[in-house]
Amino acid sequence: MTTDASDMVPALEVQGLIKRFGDLEAVAGLDLVVPQGRCQGLLGPNGAGKSTTINIIVGLLLADEGEVRVLGTDWRTDAQAIREQIGVQLQETQLFEKLTCFEALRLFRSFYRSGRDPDEILDVVGLTEKRDARYVTLSGGQKQRLSLGCSLVNDPKLLLLDEPTTGLDPQARRRVWEIVDDFKARGGTVLLTTHYMDEAEQLCDDIVIIDHGKSIAEGSPQQIIRSLGAESLIEFSIGSDTSLAQGELEQLAGVVRVHAQDEKVTLHVEATHEAVPALVGAIRDRGMSLVHLQTHRPTLEDVFVSLTGRHLRDG
């Protein structure tokens, strides 16, 4: 990647973005700035407005309100210039069944003024052996990598990925992550949407958690997790018809916050070594017994649950 004045411009600036579909406000005032060379994640459940946001950024949808500048350029002033410099992977795209990997890449390469050699891209996405295999014969992971390859043929400055690993098995996901890491290592900027917290933690420098079209938390994965103010989380459940009052749990040593859902109670704790004995003691004092107890370090999923009361996968 060359260094010039344009590197000072953020790769992506989104301001006050609003998109309505009838009565539904799919994106409800979103702000986003992605500096060049960073990997930004949009994390949220299905229907949070992630795909709508991506579709507006890549110029497929018009925003009702707000500004979008890609690499310093507005869609209204020079759409073609933006298209030349971005790589996009949309959800659910299928390529022509009877084209080979190489032919598909060559087709996409022909749309751009400059870019990389299709054979080089095959190497980048690990499909050199499948060069002459038809699309229809590829596995799900291979199809996804070819699709990623199609979004890399123009050597884009900004790569936009909409749920790049949804529906893939763990190994196939890791291979997609490697390709994205490789792109980042070349100095590229990435914006990706996902509802997998591990994917966001693995790939993203910065994250925006969105829900109902709005940002509910922002920062690096570590910052967001730290914002919970908990060193660890204790999940436990006791017999079905007995329960401890929330107020009592909050009084236990080291407990910051209590979150109860169905029979499962989650404690956000500052000091695990104090909280666990206190909890076990309290339960024993009341003559109840633990059915289940587990502690883990907080994740982005826990942040989402703590902010919304729902899980990311619930949609």
């Binding site: 110029g59 390529l95 751009y112 123009n154």
Partner: peptide, 13 residues
């Protein structure tokens, strides 16, 4: 139907 048309649209084709 393959949603390829939208994929083409985000290129300078």
């Amino acid at each position: 139907q393959k949603k390829l048309l939208r994929r083409f649209l985000v290129t300078p084709m």
